[in-house]
Amino acid sequence: MTEPNAAIELRNVEVRFETTTLRFDCTIAAGGIVAVAGASGSGKSTLFHLIAGFEDADHGEIRVLGQNAANQAPSERPVSMIFQDNNLFAHLDVATNVGLGIDPALRLTDEDRKRIEDALRRVGLEGFGRRLPPTLSGGERQRVALARALVRHRPLLLLDEPFAALDPGMRTGMRTLLGELHAEENNTILMITHHPEDVKALADSVLFLDQGRIIAHDTLDRFLERRDNAAIDRFLGNA
C-alpha cells in the first residue's frame, strides 16, 4: 500500500553487481528538498538511475507518485534529471537545448517557444537563446540545464552534483536560484552533493548512503546533530 504524500518509495530494492549488492529501502515525502550524500561509490548515482528509470532493479519495488515504475520508461516517469555535465549539445543554441525538454524532435509551437523564453528568464538567462553552450560559463550552462528541466514541468527533479564545477560565488547563486524555483514549483527535489554547505543551505532532509546502504534518513536538524557514525562524521567534518 502506498503511503500518503509519498513521492518515492523504494521497497527492498536490490541492484546486484559482480562484487557487491546495493540495497535501498526508504520513503521520500513529496514537496521537500532532499540532500543525498555519502562517499564516492556509496550508490548515490545508482539510486538516481533507479528512480529515473535508467537502471533496473534486480529485486524489490520502486513506486513514483504512487505508481509502480517497473514498466515505465524514463520518458514516461514524472521525473527530470540534471546530470553533473549538463548534457547540453554544444552545436545547438541555448533555446534549442531547452526546447529538447519539451519535444526531443523539436516540433515546437509558438506557445512552446514562449515557454522556453519564460524558463530562460526565470533562470536569469533572458536574451541568451541564440548563444552556444561553449560560449557560456559553467554556472550559465547549469542554468540552461535547469531551464530545460523547468519546461518539462515534472513533479520530481533529480540533481546529480549540480554545483560541482562551480566556484564558491556561483555555488551560492545557484543554491539561491534553486531554492526560489522550488518555492515556485512546489516540486520534490533530490540533490546529490559532497558539500555540507549545500545540505545546510538547501535541504529539508538528508539521505546518507554508505557502502550501498541508506544508513540515515533524517530531517536536516537531526542529521546535523548526529555523532553516531564515522562516515557521517567525516562528511560533516566533526572532530
Rank of each mutant, 00 (worst) to 15 (best):
I189G: 06
E140I: 10
A95K: 05
E140G: 10
L207D: 04
P104I: 06
N238S: 11
S75I: 06
L166I: 09
F163L: 13
L224T: 00
L50K: 00
L157G: 09
C26L: 12
G139A: 10
A119Y: 02
G31F: 03
A203T: 00
P78G: 04
K200F: 08
L158W: 06
R121K: 15
R175Y: 05
A105F: 14
E111K: 14
H153D: 15
A29H: 09
R152P: 07
P133T: 12
L177H: 02
D25H: 14
L207Q: 04
I8C: 02
G138I: 14
A201E: 07
N12D: 15
R143S: 13
N97A: 10
E117C: 09
R143A: 12
E3H: 13
A147D: 09
L158H: 06
G53I: 09
R122Q: 15
Q67P: 00
L236P: 02
D93Q: 11
F128R: 02
H182N: 08
R171N: 02
H182P: 05
N68V: 12
G41P: 06
A145Q: 01
P134C: 12
C26K: 01
T21I: 13
D160T: 08
S80P: 03
E140D: 12
D160L: 04
H49F: 13
P134N: 12
L157R: 05
D85M: 07
R152M: 14
R213N: 13
E180F: 05
D160R: 02
Q142G: 10
H91W: 14
R122W: 03
I28E: 00
R152V: 09
R23T: 13
T20M: 10
R107W: 12
T20N: 11
C26P: 01
M170K: 11
G43D: 08
R213E: 14
L22A: 07
L177Q: 04
R148T: 15
